[in-house]
Design a protein around this nucleic acid. Structure first.
Lengths: 293, 293
DNA sequence: CGTATAATTGATCTCGGTCAACATGAGTGG
DNA sequence: CCACTCATGTTGACCGAGATCAATTATACG
């Protein structure tokens, strides 16, 4: 299992937002021919290898497009299945030297940064099939901490081995760059969410994005269990936890969603979409004006 | 000129924030031995080559550590010096297919994303020596638009050539990954700023970060010209432009900075730091409480 | 069952968004 | 050189969304 290629959480929005006037043809995967893997410089653990990527249930999700056949073996050799983690356990901490990057395989993770004032902000949530831990690439050290939100498992990819294999397999190098790009996309989505001023927009956007991500891993997009607390959502969205709670309640009474604690069901995807685009807010504001006038 | 290796804009903060209890030894640059460049698959333009990276004034800033000597030549062959841009001209737009990545060499740029509601948010500002345009790596298309803020120049790096050279030069591959990591670091800094609730904190953090970035390119960190408007700062910080203006004025009367239009001088770096850490805000709040009690 | 943690709900107050007026400054052209 | 315009920045007044403080309820766990 390796290298998620999931779509960004806000695709739905962006596809409308970034509509390009000129019609560009869809880009294929024009990846250079993979070199045949003749030299095997990496120590192998064949025993573990067999129970690896080729049989993983998340295979289609995180197997790099363009890497298969013999190359896949090279890749699998790098992956280490890690022991399960308990909720609250961390995978790495801020300051730790770059060792590995990770793909969640079961459960969920968060990455959190701490600023000098001492308060944490959540940089991201990571569901099965999603890659994280790339934050150490810039400086050689992790700048944030990765914590399991639930019982969880990860595949660990020691970075040195990964880089070494990538330097021999251009297709993997490509894929690696692409995955990093997707990670950047998610960050930009996060910035997008954070720059919304309406709290309800942020929440709606968050819920929709999460739904889409569940859909990608074959779970219903409109009925799921939140792996994170209200507080964590709040820290991710730059809001107070009470505001998150209130927004949930509001959407509940409006019949848009159905929340009981961490169980969420989306009842009216259209209204959720509208709320995410600020339409609800506008309507509400307009309504307020009309009644005042 | 290539591949900026600048430090993140919030280093100053982070170094305090992310203090790691255990003392890790500083990591060197243990980069694998560069392969000798025997095969030259890339078409060269020797004429342009000579006036290239080796003589660039930004050399130390954006030349990759670990890439030099013969490898440098390979790299230079990829770089295209671009014609100057006028303020407002854009380098690429959302939807454009991934062509090149860019390094600002003179002037400044912004990258902006547009959400479905139609309002822009500024994703980043790019000063000389800084790399941008990586946002297309994830999907193969740019998700945002890059616009020159001033008269400007860029070095253009056609991505295909860059990737191709990188696949032959492990040291360049490493550097490429690192530069992308730094780009991610900046995004995380941005998220950090955006999740501050106090407007004054965001502004102070922004000003300090900008100062540090100017310092890196050999310009004074405490006396510079803002290349962007109040409105652009506001869109970057998730605030209303009036709030930005007011914050500037406030800091001016408090003697922390000296602003006239876009000219900024930092008078009291310590107080600026304090404001960025929310200390000023806390003091103000405490003072308010005391007077009320 | 009781305790601890998480979530909800309410009441209050403040920061910053919004609207609007005004200032400044860079061009432009008479 | 001044008058005019347009873009940009500043300042004021008002108000509401959301932060904050606080109390209550729901949920999980030993």
């Amino acid at each position: 299992m390796l290298l998620v290629a999931r779509r960004t959480s806000l695709t739905w929005i962006k596809s409308r937002a970034l509509t390009c006037p000129r019609g560009h043809p869809p880009r294929g995967s024009p990846i250079m021919a993979a070199m045949s893997a003749d030299s095997a410089a990496i120590p192998l653990d064949l025993a573990r290898l067999r129970r690896s990527c080729a049989e993983c249930s998340l295979q289609r999700l995180c197997l790099p497009a363009g890497v298969d056949g013999p190359d896949l073996g090279r890749l699998e050799a790098v992956v280490q299945r890690r022991k399960p983690l308990k909720p609250g356990e961390s995978l790495f901490r801020a300051g730790d030297p770059l060792g590995s990057v990770y793909v969640a395989s079961e459960g969920a993770f968060k990455t959190v940064g701490v600023n000098e004032a001492g308060d944490e902000h959540v940089l991201g949530f990571h569901l099965p099939g999603e890659l994280f831990g790339l934050d150490a690439l810039g400086s050689g050290r992790h700048r944030c901490e990765a914590v399991a939100l639930t019982e969880a498992r990860v595949c660990e990819l020691p970075f040195a081995s990964l880089a070494s294999v990538a330097s021999e397999l251009p297709s993997l190098q490509q894929q690696l760059l692409r995955v990093m790009g997707q990670s950047t996309d998610r960050d930009h989505d996060h910035v997008d969410v954070l720059s919304r001023r309406q709290a309800s927009e942020r929440i709606a956007l968050f819920l929709h994005g999460l739904g889409e991500r569940y859909r990608r891993i074959g779970r219903p997009a409109d009925d799921f269990q939140l792996p994170m607390s209200r507080d964590e959502i709040a820290r991710y969205l730059g809001l107070a936890l009470e505001t998150v709670s209130r927004s949930f309640s509001r959407m509940h009474e409006e019949g848009v969603i159905d929340v009981h604690g961490r169980r969420v069901r989306v009842l009216d995807a259209k209204r959720l979409h509208a709320a995410a685009s600020g339409c609800e807010a506008e309507l509400a504001r307009d309504a307020g004006r009309r009644s005042r006038a």
